[in-house]
Structure formats: C-alpha cells, structure tokens
Amino acid sequence: MQNSKISKARKAYISIMKALMWLSVAVTCSLVAFLIIYVFVKGIPNISWGLLSEKPSYLSGKIGILPDILNTVYIVIATLLIVLPIGVGAAIYLTEYAQNKKLVNIIEYAAETLSGIPSIIYGLVGMLFFCQFLNMKTSLLAGALTLVIMNLPTIMRTTQESLKTVPQSYREGAFGLGAGKWRVIHTVVLPGCVDGIITGCILSVGRILGESAALLFTAGFAHALNGIIDGLSSSGCTLTVALYVYAKEQGEFGIAFAIAAILMILTLIINLSAMLVEKYFRKRRNV
C-alpha cells in the first residue's frame, strides 16, 4: 500500500541499501565461519598427545609444545595475581574514595590512554624498563609485568562498572550500623562487584593468550621445561609467540596450525564463559 506510492528512484535506493547490508552481513559471517573451519581442518589433525606432552628436542627432531603451554599458564597466573589487586584497588579508589573530580578525570584519562597504546610499544618499554633498567633480563616475569600494564585498564573498567551497580543504600546501611569505611568496602562493596572482577579476569585472560608483540622482547623464545618459580625467572615462549616462530622462522606450518587450533578453542571457551558469567550475574541481580 505504502510501496505503491513511492517513486522508482526511492525504491531503487531501498533495494540497493538492503542488498548492500545483506552482503556486508554475509561477508562478516562467512569470514568468521571460514577462519574457524580453516584453522580447525588444518590444525586438529596435527594435534597429538606427543605434541602436547613433550618438549622439543633437537636430538630426535621432535617438536612438542608442553613448555609453551606451561609458560602460557604461568604468565596468565602471574599477570592476574599482580593486576587484580592494582586494578580492583584503583577502581575502588575511583568510585568509593575519590572526591577530587580533577584527579578522577586524570586517572580515567590515563586508563583510556593505556588501552589505546599498541602492544609493540608495551613490548619495547617493557624491555627497556623491566628487562634492562630493573635487570630482570628477558623473563616470563618481565613479560607478565608488561602485560599487567596492558590489562590494567580492562580490570579497572569492568570493576568500576559493577561497583556502580552496588546500591548506595547498602553502603549507607553499613555506615549506619557504625562500620568504618574499610569495613564497608570489604564486607559490602567488594562482594557486590565480584561479577565485574570475574568478567575483567576473563577478558584479560583472552587478551594475554592472544598477545605476542609485547612478549617478543620481554619474555623471549626459550622452550625450556620449568616449574613455575624457575619458569618465571627465565626466558620462555608462550603459545602465540611459539606459533609465530614456528610459522615465520622455521616454516613448520603443521605445528603452527595445531597451536592456532588450540588458541581458537581457548578463544571459543573464553567467549562462551564471558557470556555465561554475564547471564548468570544478570539473573541473580534481578532476583
């Protein structure tokens, strides 16, 4: 009825725009599908128990990625252990303590700036500051500290957002019962922002797993099999860096695709758990 009255030019405009939109959505979706399927088809046949459970040996010419997996786990743990107190603390300061609006703006602006800096620059400054100035050499710990700076804005933001959803009346109630500020924070405010902290952790783990440029010069390339303490103080290769080395420098594409498939599975798991966590907490909040 409406369509019969509009001119041909308008009809053409509408159908062209519709077609372009459909095309764009199709391109986006098929890209995602292609990437997942291609990496899995090329990678999964190359994953074997031997690959996952051994370290590379020049004698037998075998390649194993167990050290890289462990290094990745160590660096995730170390980074989260350091970044959590700092990020959560900073968020608490911003929402609970800070009264000076200017200072809040400066801190928030700094966090925004940090989230815009490319990882290669983090890698460079990490190398100059942690590895050389603080004399840590290229080590997982230096890599982890570099990643701490990178992930600080993420943890701060997610924690801050969930702190804002803790009702003001909870705090007032606790103050009214005579609790001091610290007591209010650790008994009332902190439990209320657990969801933000968990979301922040998941996002950070995803970012750490995918990071490579910042780790090239800070954590190094070694494939040695270490415990966590020795591991942190020595140079070590994470999964992404290993992928890069195997693909670009050694031409071992089978291994590279196996690592890519593992990374892809981890990415899927992280995205899924981020979604589930969000759903769970939203439900609980509405009850």
């Binding site: 959505v25 979706c29 599908a33 995918g210 992928l243 890519a260 995205n271 979604m275």
Partner: peptide, 22 residues
C-alpha cells in the same frame, strides 16, 4: 552475529597472520 563478531575480536593476531600467510 554479535557472538560471531566478538569471536572475531578474540582471535589472536598471529592466527590472522598465519591464515593470511597461507
């Protein structure tokens, strides 16, 4: 589609590089 897009955001850059290379 939103889920697919966040997945695209989560894929490590070296994986893009690898697929691009080959």
């Amino acid at each position: 589609v939103g889920t697919a897009v966040s997945l695209l955001a989560g894929i490590p850059s070296v994986v893009y590089g690898l697929v691009g290379m080959l």
